[in-house]
Design a binder for these strands. Sequence first.
DNA 1: TCGAACTGACTGTCCGGTCAGTCAAAAAAA
DNA 2: TTTTTTTGACTGACCGGACAGTCAGTTCGA
Lengths: 210, 210
Amino acid sequence: MTTETATQILHATHSALCKHGYAELTMQDIADETDLCKASIHYHYDGKHDLLVAYLDHLYEQFEDRIAEPAGETPAERLRGLVVALVTDRSDAPAFQTALLEIKAQSPYDDAFRSRLQRFDHAFTAAVREVVAEGVADGTFHEEVDPDAVASFLTTYVNGAQTRHAAVGHPLDDSAAAVDAYIDEALRADQAASTGGGPSSETANVGGTE
Amino acid sequence: MTTETATQILHATHSALCKHGYAELTMQDIADETDLCKASIHYHYDGKHDLLVAYLDHLYEQFEDRIAEPAGETPAERLRGLVVALVTDRSDAPAFQTALLEIKAQSPYDDAFRSRLQRFDHAFTAAVREVVAEGVADGTFHEEVDPDAVASFLTTYVNGAQTRHAAVGHPLDDSAAAVDAYIDEALRADQAASTGGGPSSETANVGGTE
DNA sequence: TCGAACTGACTGTCCGGTCAGTCAAAAAAA
DNA sequence: TTTTTTTGACTGACCGGACAGTCAGTTCGA
């Protein structure tokens, strides 16, 4: 098939996923976002599962690009950009985060999903680790800061922020603010530590906002 | 119906949920964990959704008891007990956490689920806040520690640990260790802050060792 | 004997997947 | 060039399985 058709179907999958959620997603829903019929999608993809996996791969490529070179002058800004990008309420994708959580929840039952999600997790952790290491190297962050520990910590925190937002409506802004406080208070070498309950960490999100 | 029958069905719901997961759960699966037939369950509950909601309520009662009076001499120990109880790999419930995540992921589509999950969230946050406040009051924790912020922070982190464990297999032990480190380094008044910052706590290594 | 508890058989619906066939454009033959 | 064949893309109609929920009827204890 032409790449145009492929992206059309992948795009339709995204829209349908946001509209109906993963659990309620049907092939017809996807076809409805297309000028093709249901059978045509089966013609291009071996089945629903195949299509979803292709969609996750497609998503990962975008995610990879997005976290590849964090914008910002200082490591602190880049770190903030990296994390906050996943913990910000983008009006274009309220339902997307929810659908992604549904997929995460299916991951234990589906090896293909699981390996894809692991790629997201590893990529994000690696990106954070990289930026933190830069910060430690150039003196932005305390020298005792362990990039591995911080990266894993933030990844877990981001996961929590996303889950808690989707599940109980805990504001993403609150979680983002807590990360900001964490960066300032726990990592930055030039900031006075003010303790307090500030730093809450979380991590999580795989897919990003799209 | 007798409360015995009720608990039998609720128990069966739990077992079936762990065995099959939420997405694949059928009324027949639940009935199979019972000495009743499918129709009998429909006789006692208005439907699948009703039963699941009753199950969540049942679950909440147990949860409430569990976090009601955290065990431990010091606030630090009680806080640890509170958090680690939710971030420990209990052999009896590997699949249970996954099923719970599936339910969380459905929460945005289901008001009854959502309100129940919010009760869990609020109860846990309140329990943490309480213990932290005790710790601040008796000098175990720094006086600058904000119980509200710490409670929200830890709740989010716990969510992240659970999600990341289920979704990509990130070890719960690692997350638990990070929380231990957080308590020691960011909250406890008698611990030396590892960073150069100031007199107040430092959370440089909040992420822990993992 | 009355009614609550329970059951087996059944129904309606939904959905993933299949299939025979259409159609247009490319390739091959004339 | 014109005609024929092939092929890839696509479609409407259909199939079969799964599952929530129903219902007429049975069982059994009070």
